[in-house]
Design a protein around this nucleic acid. Structure first.
Lengths: 324, 324
DNA sequence: TTGTACGCGTTATCAG
DNA sequence: CTGATAACGCGTACAA
């Protein structure tokens, strides 16, 4: 900046102004400064800027997994919007565990982010303490709660599970089995589904749960295990479209007709879900909208705006297709 | 740090030492400092540290897309390893365009990253100039070249396409069609495949190319268009497993037998590829290894080590399964 | 082993 | 509209 200033015949401070608030500088000197920047190839140093201004222009985003489209899709839109507001995103994986989340958060905070995006509403006491200590806006996505740390944007997994059961019941299914990934939110949907389905039909569905994430392979394996345990007819409720797709494939390989013999419901309405055979009945979450809204909420909170509601429920929508 | 120091009865510098190089401090004072840190809830400020030491401990990573498993899988391992070395990753999407890459890079550089991960080997002149100006290590992944900016780690897309053709020829296929996504590397594989297949059989395969990325939907659409244009028998070469999976589904929906009527090859060996019906013949890239190796190379270069080779070819491997 | 003095490249405050 | 000066919180060099 010093160099640029000398070239333009002004002081270093004026260069700083020209960059951060151009209208505070006369058109004439602004031009000279821009030329000098062009000439020298000067690149601003945001770490110095961050130190001086106490604004890092950095957002920390903690997601369970970046390879899971569910989250990367959300992040893509989040990042897009947040970058439009001049921020950079420090992204990290927390792997569905609160301990990992806390460890990651602690190193993240040393970057002095201006805001934080968290996935889910269950965080360790240590996490909450650190967040409080940091004193920065926090947005929790992908779930709802009455008592968010700061604000939360998502949907009710319990209601989602319940409405899946209601849908299944209304479509005439009286027997069901659940195939679920091992993460806490998937299990919550599964439990809500089973409970409501039991209430409606009188029989509580069995459940097949995997330790970790959803894959097509586990979906195939899930149906195989269901069949082994005697499941022949009814609805297979899957905690994700990936599992459901696997169920579809396994059914086909065993010449089990869908939805003739068994019906299948997924969750997430992924890109492929309209194009499986048969097309997958699933639950749509508007992930792009969710990501964008989370970004906007965060930017607003960083600007010290109060949001109309502490907790925004973006809802979900059951998409009936051929599989159930 | 000042406060922590006072509490522990030492100066600020000693606290800094205790954090960065504990063995430079006596066990006694170290203990007192750690207690003081615990008591105050002190969180180090890496932005100040970065400014003072001129090491940001930040790596910028530019990938075409974070929703594409191909890249997010690579990034997952890259981030894992890089975090193990004490760095944070600043990740951004470049969307397959050189202009976007340059725009993103320019804002990234103002964070003064210690190193950069780039995807591919084709970058705008502006990019190269900025990179040279930054004077930091650069690792280019997912491709190979004789003249990398700094070091590159990947595989030859041309050889991959050629070996796919060779494989198809040896399996007895004499007719083929290519279905490709629109990105430059996919097209390079497609062109190499078509050229080699033509050389081997005397007939150059037609190609169906999409403007943008691969999806199952486009795979289905690709086969539909192939059929419309008269394709009845032979191999469908797909630029990715996602497209191939779509082809498989479309074939099934039309009662076209695979590999009886048509054969299908994918690329990428994704999680699901062994579990489609039939299982997908594809090309495996060891993405986890690639990500880890890129991270290690970057860390080594940041430590001013010279690598034995400027360009590391991690190769690829054709995985023969039932579909071709 | 510990402390002093200084500088990193900006922004904020105040004065002109 | 512009400039001087003082932080920002830490690491480095050197001295003790």
């Amino acid at each position: 900046m010093e160099t640029v200033g000398r070239l333009a015949g002004v002081s270093q401070v004026t260069v700083s102004r020209a960059l951060n608030d151009p209208k505070k500088v006369s058109a004439n000197t602004l031009k000279r400064i821009q030329d000098a920047i062009e000439l020298t190839g000067y690149v601003p140093n945001m770490v110095a800027g961050a130190l001086a201004s106490k604004r890092s222009q950095l957002i920390a985003a903690l997601v369970p997994s970046i390879t899971n489209v569910i989250y990367s899709d959300l992040m893509q839109n989040f990042i897009d919007v947040i970058r439009g507001s001049g921020y950079h995103v420090l992204m990290a994986e927390t792997g569905f565990s609160q301990e990992e989340e806390q460890a990651v958060l602690s190193t993240m905070l040393s970057r002095r982010p201006d805001g934080i995006l968290l996935t889910g509403i269950h965080h360790s006491a240590g996490c909450k303490r650190m967040l409080l200590g940091a004193g920065i806006p926090v947005v929790e996505v992908w779930d709802t709660t009455e008592s968010p740390i700061d604000v939360c944007i998502g949907f009710s997994h319990i209601r989602a599970g319940e409405e899946m059961a209601q849908f299944a019941f209304e479509r005439g299914y009286r027997n069901a089995i659940a195939v679920s990934a091992g993460d806490e939110r998937a299990l919550r949907r599964k439990d809500a589904f089973c409970a409501r389905f039991a209430k409606l039909t009188g029989t509580r569905p069995d459940a097949i749960c995997f330790e970790s994430g959803a894959t097509i392979e586990r979906g195939r394996n899930g149906l195989a295990r269901a069949i082994d345990s005697g499941f022949r007819n009814g609805l297979v409720m899957c905690s994700s479209d990936l599992l459901a797709h696997g169920v579809l494939i396994e059914a086909q390989s065993r010449s089990i007709s869908v939805p003739g013999d068994i019906a299948v419901m997924g969750f997430g309405n992924q890109d492929f879900s309209a194009f499986t055979l048969p097309a997958l009945t699933t639950v749509d979450i508007n992930r792009k909208h969710l990501g964008a809204q989370a970004a906007e909420a965060l930017v607003a909170r960083i600007g010290n705006q109060e949001l109309p509601e502490k907790c925004i429920d973006v809802g979900f929508q059951i998409i009936p297709r051929a599989s159930a």
